[in-house]
Amino acid sequence: MKKNLFFFFGLFLLTHCEDPIALELNDTEERLVVEAYINWIKETNTSEQEVILSLSSPYFGTSYKTGSGATVTIEDDAGQLYTFIEEEKTGRYLTRDTLPYVLNRAYTLHIEYKGEHYSGTESLKAVSSLNRIDQETIDFFGQEAIQLEARAVDPIAERNFSFFEFTSEALEVPEYNVYRDDFNNGGEYYGFLLDQNLKEGDQVRVRQYGLSNIGYNYWYLLILQNTQQGGPFQTTPVNLLGNLTHESNPERNPLGYFRLSEVSEIIYTIN
């Protein structure tokens, strides 16, 4: 919802004009990037468990390096280790043994890369099930657009955080919303997609991922800074600080996040 606010303010400024400009930047040395996720999908009882390592690159660069040859393990709070094996120098590490579906259990990810040690801790966060998808056609700035509302009910007991993801071949890029239950504890809420390119028959995969409070902070900024339309009301950009750290030097903390989520999914076909 907050994302939409900035989106609209940017859009309505019809008199502005944007053009690309050449700039010299002060690029830094490479840092390790970790995209680690354990997804347990409620409806199918299946899991996606992967750790992807890569390296950062200069901002205007066109290629990026993978993080190959690392040792990746996840340890649970009882000391049990799960080893991840790299798939053929791609930087993608997959687990031999599946991490079990136990909500709120804490896990620590350990990475040994080029002689340096990195780690981070997170727990598997629950999510409320998606009950249904409501579809509507809206007149958006003169064109017809399909609006989808993916509805769920918030459990009143805990503090809940999650994010919605809408992916489809018909969408140029996936759509994301974050959610926290502070305004709406115990009530019904929805994830939201509005797109002019969707047509009847298109298939959209709608997912809601459970997050911890820190995970919410990360995804909130991730979505705010990487999908807003801009305009004169720019927020001061801030670096995403994930939940992973370097053994001794905070300036070399890895970028990215280690997330464990329960996921609710619906594959929806546009009417």
């Binding site: 690029d27 995209e35 970028l255």
Partner: peptide, 10 residues
């Protein structure tokens, strides 16, 4: 504040 690096995530 200018960017000084880029990376791929999600």
């Amino acid at each position: 504040t200018y960017p000084n690096a880029q990376y791929q995530f999600s």
